[in-house]
Amino acid sequence: MRTMTTPPGQAPAPARRDAEATKTAILKAARFLLARHAHADITLKAVAERAGVSPPLILKYFGNKEALFARVMSFDTDADDLLDAPLDGLGRHMVRHVLASQRERGADPLLRIAFAPLHGDHGDVLRANFRAQVTERLAARLTGPDAGLRAELAVAAVVGLGVMYGIARGPHVREADADAVADRYGPAVQAQLTPRGPGTS
């Protein structure tokens, strides 16, 4: 009797998908906790409980707490999503993205910067990553004078919105339609990205 076998190269696929899903859950849990607690106060046990896995599994995938949080303290993927729009509509997109992150994921990954320790290596890494991966990356897309300042002001505006929604829990912002907020707040962000001055059309 012939035994059915899985074609070569196909069997590992589900395991790889499961591994990626598990890694994503761990990173999401660590980001959630880092958006609410100081790095030093977060344990692997807390991350594991939030992710629904065991602490040894975190060690298997990331090696140790420091390696896990090195990944968590990167803003690259978050910046990809935040800045994923043409420049002329980016302000509204950034506002909409922050609201969607809060409502769909329960946290805005950018808010990790608000919890960066004032002193110590971890705070320095988080701030350096934020500058390089978010504000300086945005500034590189801008034209005209004071691009760095304008990028920082635009990002400050959306981080402030995230604070109002996720930390201060402003009831009016939380209850408002996301598109309505984007329509009101987006132009304030856009004014830094594409300022209209004398002689501009």
Rank of each mutant, 00 (worst) to 15 (best):
residue 2 R to V: 11
residue 5 T to S: 13
residue 13 A to W: 14
residue 14 P to R: 06
residue 14 P to Q: 07
residue 15 A to I: 10
residue 20 E to D: 13
residue 22 T to K: 12
residue 23 K to D: 04
residue 25 A to G: 07
residue 25 A to S: 08
residue 27 L to P: 00
residue 28 K to P: 02
residue 33 L to W: 02
residue 34 L to S: 05
residue 38 A to G: 15
residue 45 K to N: 12
residue 51 A to F: 07
residue 54 S to D: 10
residue 54 S to W: 03
residue 54 S to C: 05
residue 55 P to Y: 07
residue 60 K to P: 02
residue 60 K to D: 09
residue 61 Y to L: 15
residue 62 F to W: 04
residue 63 G to E: 05
residue 71 R to P: 01
residue 71 R to L: 13
residue 74 S to R: 06
residue 75 F to P: 00
residue 76 D to E: 13
residue 77 T to I: 13
residue 79 A to E: 01
residue 83 L to G: 02
residue 85 A to K: 03
residue 88 D to Y: 09
residue 99 L to Q: 02
residue 100 A to Q: 12
residue 103 R to N: 09
residue 106 G to H: 10
residue 107 A to G: 11
residue 111 L to A: 05
residue 114 A to Y: 07
residue 116 A to V: 05
residue 120 G to Q: 09
residue 122 H to E: 14
residue 125 V to D: 05
residue 128 A to W: 07
residue 132 A to H: 08
residue 136 E to K: 09
residue 137 R to Y: 04
residue 143 T to K: 09
residue 152 E to F: 06
residue 153 L to V: 12
residue 156 A to K: 08
residue 159 V to P: 01
residue 162 G to E: 01
residue 169 R to E: 11
residue 173 V to K: 00
residue 178 A to Y: 01
residue 181 V to E: 00
residue 181 V to F: 02
residue 189 V to N: 03
residue 193 L to G: 02
residue 197 G to V: 11
